[in-house]
Simulated scan of single mutants.
Amino acid sequence: MDRIRRRRTGAVAGTLTALALAVTGLFAGGTGTAAADTRAVPQHAVTGYWQNFDNGAQVQKLGDVQDDYDIIAVAFADATGTPGQVTFNLDSAGLGGYTVDQFKADIKAKQAAGKSVIISVGGEKGAVAVDDAASASAFADSVYALMREYGFDGVDIDLENGLDSTYMTQALKSLAGKAGSGLVLTMAPQTIDMQSPSNEYFKTALAVKDILTVVNMQYYNSGSMLGCDGKVYSQGTVDFLTGLACIQLENGLAPSQVGIGVPASPQAAGGGYVFPDVVNNALDCLAKGTGCGSFKPSKTYPDIRGAMTWSTNWDAGAGSAWSKAVGPHVHDLP
């Protein structure tokens, strides 16, 4: 997610060809072990990114975030001059004079209503490098400091400019040791990052699956990609959502650790928008085997976590049509 709208150029055909052999034949049929669940995260959850900036979407205070969202990811933390270290700067001016005290109070109110509020690190322009032991330590220490200062429940990893699985794993394990079992840990990789379990992002997710809440891959701004059957699917279709989710579901992540990330409105992304009913059909296909397109998984995954959107602000600007449709559907999954 970026501060203008949402990112990334389409994947080229050559990349798909190179990945085809990696995707086909990967699957051993296992779905991994379930994650240790965290405080306030329901079995089926909706994640939404809240924008700490004004980019043309509807400006919201955190307290304005729609009630259908179970996990609210505050976008974004800012890098400092120290490698791996992050901080948070509330855009009070851009948000109409929203104060830090009001922001902290709104976090507490959302938590009292059973929501989780986490700090997101990254976005298209968020260059945070965790590539050695020192930066891993700086990352864990600084995120934990933000959790204590603001009351965040955890962290979202939305790094779109490269990721070192060895040191990001080290950082997240260290953070979990500080924060304890209540840590909410989410990830929002791009589609290309989750095409194979040998990719650095995927390797990180698998390495921290004992503390991982959900991976909400971004099923947009990518162009066509490979599904788990080795076929190419076009973004903006139910097959794209189900065929790509299958890769994660059959390569080590528990169904409860897999979510579908989509734009809340056509204006929220450069491509890949789908109507809310397509999201609901994809969830039904994965959870119950109904609503599928041409691709139908060989099994169902009733514990699939749910869905994510960029952003609560774009959703609000469209009359909250996305959360009103997808939220109740996610919460009614078996």
Results as ranks from 00 to 15, higher is better:
38 T>G: 06
115 K>V: 05
125 K>S: 10
317 G>Q: 00
49 Y>A: 01
37 D>S: 15
13 A>N: 15
14 G>N: 14
110 K>F: 01
308 M>K: 12
161 N>Y: 11
174 S>Y: 04
278 V>P: 00
73 A>K: 00
58 Q>V: 01
79 A>M: 04
279 V>I: 03
71 I>P: 03
328 P>I: 07
98 Y>M: 04
169 T>D: 11
216 N>C: 15
264 A>G: 15
56 G>W: 01
10 G>V: 14
254 A>V: 09
123 G>H: 05
74 V>D: 02
248 Q>L: 14
29 G>F: 00
28 A>F: 02
205 A>N: 13
131 D>S: 10
310 W>D: 11
70 D>C: 06
162 G>A: 03
186 T>S: 09
258 V>I: 15
311 S>I: 03
331 H>A: 12
159 L>H: 08
176 A>D: 13
298 S>V: 14
154 G>S: 08
92 S>C: 04
84 G>F: 08
71 I>K: 00
91 D>W: 06
120 S>Q: 05
150 Y>A: 01
21 L>W: 11
38 T>Q: 12
220 Y>E: 04
190 Q>I: 13
123 G>A: 02
305 R>N: 13
37 D>V: 15
321 A>Q: 07
16 L>Q: 14
26 L>K: 12
320 S>L: 05
110 K>Y: 05
310 W>M: 07
169 T>P: 10
62 L>D: 06
26 L>F: 05
51 Q>C: 01
97 G>P: 12
94 G>V: 11
156 D>W: 05
122 G>I: 09
175 L>R: 00
153 D>K: 01
34 A>M: 02
306 G>R: 08
308 M>R: 10
166 T>N: 02
304 I>G: 06
246 C>W: 10
17 T>L: 11
275 F>C: 09
190 Q>F: 10
239 D>Y: 11
274 V>L: 06
11 A>D: 08
259 G>I: 14
27 F>T: 14
49 Y>P: 02
148 R>Q: 14
164 D>F: 08
73 A>N: 13
154 G>Y: 08
218 Q>S: 12
176 A>Q: 13
